[in-house]
Amino acid sequence: MAQAPEYHYVGSVDYQPTRPSAHQNLIELYGLTELAKKVGRVDEFGNKRKMRRSYKAYIQDLPGYNEILRDNTIKQWLTNPIREEVPIDIEFLHHVFSVEPGIIPGFNPKVFGLEDDVVMGNVSRDSSQPRSPSRRKK
């Protein structure tokens, strides 16, 4: 006589659906609708929204000529964060910056991003003051 087959009673286990379900719109569920609109490939008028490959747009209003360097600076900061306070001796800084006019060897003034050299007068200001002339849009 053949041995009777073994049966498992499938009703003995209760199953609950996973949540959230992919049947739901996860963009809406997690409040990402505005983000999806902002970065979508087409804007609300049907025009194609172009995106720069680099983050140049975010730094082009900073003063000077800014190159985008590709390195591991941020990774190093994350790996070895500097947490202690660095003391600053303002009198010592005033002393070491007592410099005389002259040529700075090996220095490329291109970093200023200026067509012509500009002789600056007093530029002392806090953030509530207007920007100095050296700051300009590109």
Binding site: G64, I104, F107, F112, D117, V123
Partner: peptide
């Protein structure tokens, strides 16, 4: 930037 420009000029 301002400090560097002053020193340079």
């Amino acid at each position: 930037y301002d400090l560097a420009l002053i020193v340079y000029n």
